[in-house]
């Protein structure tokens, strides 16, 4: 019986795995949105070559204003 105290609880493990998966999903979606949004402006065939400067500037101004 002594060994059972050290066995991981199956439900706790499953819950932890679920939380981890949800956390991964959020992170992956957030980063994917940021990349896709920038790629739409930068990497398409008709992209403005200076689009990134505008994108960065807009983000920086937005952050400064929100402080």
């Amino acid at each position: 019986m002594g060994g059972q105290a050290n066995q991981p609880d199956a439900r706790a493990l499953r819950d932890a795995a679920l939380r981890r998966a949800q956390s991964h999903q959020t992170l992956v979606e957030t980063n994917s949105d940021i990349l896709a949004q920038a790629a739409d402006r930068l990497l398409t065939l008709d992209s403005d070559p200076r689009a990134l400067d505008h994108w960065f500037h807009d983000e920086a101004v937005s952050r400064e204003r929100s402080r």
Binding site: T30, N31, F56, E59
Partner: peptide, 8 residues
């Protein structure tokens, strides 16, 4: 610059 894109 904002680093959201670099971090992503």
């Amino acid at each position: 610059p904002d680093l959201a894109l670099a971090h992503a």
